[in-house]
């Protein structure tokens, strides 16, 4: 894990650009779906203790909806697309005309629609990243969960868990005009994937 602590500013910038390109394309995809402009915050790249990662979405007990894809190929990792239940409802209403019940639960049809939305967005995130880096990155079938953020995100940390107590996270938020639709992408590349990403982009790996 020491390696990551000594990442120079420059490398962090490269990773920010990685997040920017991925989420930028996903935002475009969402903007087409909604037929409205979608804004994006500047990506954050941080080495965070496990505890603090769920703080980014409101704490370990915060209920969130997450679409999770395992990235396979040259630079494996975990990709989460995270929404609040309210945002998920608003997306369903506007994209597929479904009005979920007030009980806060989603039925099979609604889950399936959300999964598909996540799949489209995550797919565009990954394919632009793959084009940019020239690495093969293919997503697994998306899995959807609505649960405590800590329980969900810990799944993305297992690969890092073998190496230390921190994970390097590329975090991008996007917002649609009136903030009705806000979502977060977390890309957590496996520890060994960073060297491959840097190499593919011509960043020298050896001297940090």
């Amino acid at each position: 894990m020491e390696v990551f602590k000594h990442f120079k500013e420059f490398k962090m910038d490269v990773l920010k650009e990685v997040g920017n390109i991925g989420a930028g394309n996903a935002a475009t995809a969402l903007s087409r779906l909604l037929n409205k402009p979608v804004d994006m915050a500047v990506p954050k790249v941080q080495l965070l203790p496990f505890e603090d990662i769920s703080e980014k979405v409101g704490g370990a007990e915060q209920v969130v909806i997450a679409i999770f894809l395992r990235v396979e190929g040259d630079a494996p990792g975990n990709l989460f697309f995270i929404l609040s239940p309210e945002v998920a409802k608003s997306l369903l209403k506007r994209l597929v005309g479904i009005h979920p019940g007030a009980d806060g639960l989603f039925n099979e049809m609604e889950c399936s629609a959300l999964s598909e939305i996540g799949n489209i967005l995550a797919g565009s995130y990954l394919s632009s990243l793959a084009d940019f880096t020239n690495l093969s990155m293919s997503p697994t079938v998306p899995a959807l969960a609505m649960d405590m953020a800590g329980a969900i995100l810990s799944y993305g940390l297992l690969q890092f868990g073998q190496m230390g107590d921190d994970a390097l996270l590329i975090d991008t938020t996007f917002i649609e005009g009136d903030q009705e639709v806000e979502g977060q992408f977390f890309l957590i590349p496996d520890p060994d994937s960073f060297a491959k990403i840097f190499q593919s982009l011509g960043v020298p790996v050896d001297h940090d």
Binding site: F50, E51, S54, G59, A60, E61, D147, M148, A149, G150, A151, I152, S154, Y155, L157, L158, G161, D165
Partner: peptide, 23 residues
């Protein structure tokens, strides 16, 4: 008790950990 963490309490009070998934 955080993730990958341990702790103890004696006599009174409670001890808790949040957001257990596969952990």
């Amino acid at each position: 008790v955080g993730m990958a963490d341990m702790n103890v309490v004696q006599r009174s009070g409670t001890i808790r950990t949040v957001g257990l998934g596969s952990c």
